[in-house]
Simulated scan of single mutants.
Amino acid sequence: MTRRYAYVGPGELHGLAPVGVGVVRGAADLDAWLAARDPRELAEPFTFVVDGGGVLRLAPRRSEHVACAGGGDVLAAGEMGFVRTAAGWRVDRVSNQSTGYCPDAAGSWPAVAAALTAAGTPHPGGFTDEVVFRRCTACAARNVVHDGDLVCAVCAAPLPEHWNLGLS
């Protein structure tokens, strides 16, 4: 079963218009989108989502994931970096870092791998940086868990052991 992640971030960001989004269905799409970037942008990872149709969408790093997704649910979200090789572009770093969608690493990686494979883009085979998200059951705050410390950063209540943010 492929998980779909609903947007769980701040409501005021939900209506943002997408800016500079590249839709990547193949290597030519990726090459064209990355070639249009300022070379300084290539040093940083880009915002990405895998949309509900399994297509990779990229945006400049400081873009909101929900805007990159056009406001819809996603199969994955995070940040992704690329390096140019003799054979073309390859992903050298990728994370599930998206505080707007808070995707579970294990549940979202298969969609990332499938989208990159469909686009003919080599990748590391898993997230190079995994972020652990939990919602506090006491105060409802979204938390990024650091070093396995399952304690809410807002109210100090214990956090659930398993991912518990909204599935759509």
Rank of each mutant, 00 (worst) to 15 (best):
F46I: 04
G22F: 01
P45F: 02
G26K: 01
A17T: 03
A32S: 13
L16Y: 14
V19Q: 11
F48A: 06
L16W: 11
A69K: 05
V55E: 05
V23K: 01
T47R: 07
R40L: 12
G54Y: 07
A76E: 01
G26R: 01
P60V: 07
A28L: 13
D31N: 14
V66R: 14
L16V: 05
A69N: 05
G52R: 12
L56V: 11
G54W: 06
V49W: 02
D29I: 07
V50A: 01
L16T: 04
A76F: 00
W33L: 12
G15W: 02
A76T: 05
R57Y: 03
A36H: 05
L30R: 02
G72W: 15
E41I: 03
H65V: 05
G53H: 13
A27D: 10
R61V: 12
V55S: 07
L16C: 12
V21E: 02
G72D: 11
R25D: 00
D73P: 12
D73R: 10
R37Q: 13
L34T: 08
R25N: 08
A28N: 13
G53L: 06
V74K: 12
G70P: 10
G15I: 02
L75V: 09
L56C: 05
G26N: 13
C68M: 10
V49K: 07
G53I: 05
R62C: 06
G70W: 03
A43Q: 15
G26A: 09
G78N: 09
L30Y: 02
V50D: 00
A35W: 14
A59G: 15
L30F: 03
P39Q: 14
F48L: 03
D29A: 00
A27G: 15
V50N: 01
L42F: 08
F46S: 04
G71H: 03
G53E: 10
V66H: 15
A27Y: 03
H14M: 12
A36L: 08
R61P: 01
A59C: 11
A28R: 10
L42V: 08
A59L: 09
F48I: 04
L58V: 10
V74S: 08
H14F: 14
R61K: 13
A76D: 02
G15V: 00
A32K: 03
P18K: 02
G71D: 06
D29G: 08
V55K: 07
L13C: 09
H14Y: 14
L56Q: 06
G22D: 01
A17P: 13
R25T: 04
G52T: 09
G70H: 09
C68V: 08
